[in-house]
Amino acid sequence: MTDFENVPVSAPTETQLGTALRRRTFLRVAGASAASAALVLAGCGKDAPEPVVPPDPNLITLQAGETGLLNYCFLFKQLQAAFYTKVVAAYPSDFTAADKTFFADLHDHEVVQRQALSFALGNNYLPPLPFVFTSFTLTTRAGVLAAAQQLEDLGVAALVGALPLFSTFQLRVLLAKMLSVEGRHAALVRDLASPGTFAGPDAVTAGLNRTLTPTAGIAATAAFTAPIVISVANLPTV
């Protein structure tokens, strides 16, 4: 566990959070991420040889097959839950009472869905990532709604694209149960931002929701996960 010895093990103070936490997170993600491989090695115990250091510590390669696909879906849930957690912790001053009620629900739904997918993944789940939301303006209602709209539309399109790649019927059902809730979220935050835009032309074409392949979906999350890069190269494509 060479990687871990070089970083502080005691909890960083709040003021240290920026860099210290980032670094720890990043290292831990990297350490835990060569997905199962590194973990299996780590599990060999104190007497076991040192684990192999991943070649590119910035790179997380999602597993092949449905485990990787489910982790891909899980990533969006992590992203959205982290976003709403930030929002509900400090609502913009121009948020209305109704806005707050809705966003509290949005937060809860995303956390519930994230936890459910984490549960479904057992011990194969993608470690939590330190998402970066600097591209958003979270101090104004308009900024928060624009951000929520981007993340929700992205979430719907990503699930539409990912769901057919699952071969297990039950997983398709589970994700479909979440997909429509995501569609409801997207419609609401759009309506809050600009009434009547629940199906705007940037999200819907000819009465059909947009779809994103995992390759396109992961590219759309890149700015939020940087410097960590997530590869979907091993995911099924048909």
Partner: peptide, 23 residues
């Protein structure tokens, strides 16, 4: 994937409609 994708695109639209009508 093709048929299922079409069905899911429509499914997502139903959800958007439902959310808007409820709102």
């Amino acid at each position: 994937t093709e048929l299922l994708t079409v069905a899911l695109k429509i499914h997502s639209m139903e959800a958007r409609h439902a959310a808007h009508v409820r709102y």
